[in-house]
Nucleic acid binder design. Sequence first.
DNA 1: TGCTATTAGTGTACTAATAACACTAGATAT
DNA 2: ATATCTAGTGTTATTAGTACACTAATAGCA
Lengths: 223, 223
Amino acid sequence: MAYAYDYPHPAVTVDVAVFTVSGGRLAVVLIRRNEWPHAGKWAIPGGFVGIDESLKRAAWRELREETGLKAGNLEQLGAFGRPDRDPRERVITVVYISLVTFDRLHLEAGSDASDARLFFVDDLPELAFDHSRILGHAVERLQERLDTEGVARRLMPASFTLTDLQQACEAVSGAAIDKRNFRKKLKALDVVERTGEVKRDGPHRPAQLYRVKTNWNDGRARR
Amino acid sequence: MAYAYDYPHPAVTVDVAVFTVSGGRLAVVLIRRNEWPHAGKWAIPGGFVGIDESLKRAAWRELREETGLKAGNLEQLGAFGRPDRDPRERVITVVYISLVTFDRLHLEAGSDASDARLFFVDDLPELAFDHSRILGHAVERLQERLDTEGVARRLMPASFTLTDLQQACEAVSGAAIDKRNFRKKLKALDVVERTGEVKRDGPHRPAQLYRVKTNWNDGRARR
DNA sequence: TGCTATTAGTGTACTAATAACACTAGATAT
DNA sequence: ATATCTAGTGTTATTAGTACACTAATAGCA
């Protein structure tokens, strides 16, 4: 009992919802808890904020410790702090969202978690704490904010077909998109270009492969 | 020193940026601090979260204690937690935004604050802590999210002229709006109706007064 | 009383964005 | 050779947005 205060302090954690698209479906990284509370349940990776550490840095560190991922572009979703969300003590969590391309997603389970893996967002297991609610908000946020350019720049691998990109957009938005309108808009956006390669994967016409055009006023988050 | 923990805990506060429109300008409620740190500077009202109190409820309570306002519709902006933002100890603050119509804004200075008053957002005094940065984000959020209907429903008094409403929208967005286009869009939105009264206030044609149409799937915030 | 100053109030034409919709092309497997 | 399967491509109609200028009604004043 080394740290004492004049009045009670809540604990503060950060959690990171890492999304990717795999097989045309939106997916999120979860870790399997192996300690009380909610041992055995799946949870968004996260942990306690160091006393001299910024929120975003804590999020980055916890994510790396628990999954091996070094995520760029952490965007804050918000704070969740209902008094009863953790049985150990009052815990307020600040949640971040990260988008990672599937080809750069190499998960390693860390010390606090017995396992780390991807789950499709439309087929989640039972989650620890209020993480189900949190993921609901996170997905809502993606749907509100993530446009075609964002999907292309942040969720697509180095090369991809236009059908892949369209499916990724559909996975995020949850709605079907017309192929011709989608391609017309892409042309107007001017964010992808042909690589010259094609992808052959079945008894049908091969698809042109594309890459995202590099753009130097790109990344850098805001808060 | 009654409260002890195994590892250091940050303090958690809530702050509320209350916006209104007055005289066609966007304004925010600030309180004058009379204690260290930043005594004498102006700050967004707020304070520490009770250990068994939800974040939103804490925000509501602190706002009422410090300004006398009972704000509905608190919307979370986000958490701000740079390690050095408060010299007393590590403090993470969760910021809420509230919009209040000018005619319901009756400020009373509370115990922690020697004074509470409105400031125009484009003419702010020096602010305590990182509140200048926070207000910057809050205004950005309003500009991103607050549309004409939102301004009408949340910032206008019981009756107002269309010019008043347009000026309020211009105050929020910071940009001039074409009068005829504005009125055409308002007609399509179908959110205001004539009261039948007129406002005479000068040597010119009197303006029709309008009210917001009541709409039962209205308020209720989300988090 | 009529002139002036001031804000209220109104419509149209052009442009851009969005949505609906169906066929041909090129590969593999049989 | 043929069947099957996905890739790829334009046009038209609708809707939303933008630019733009004059008349109407009042109060103050000469």
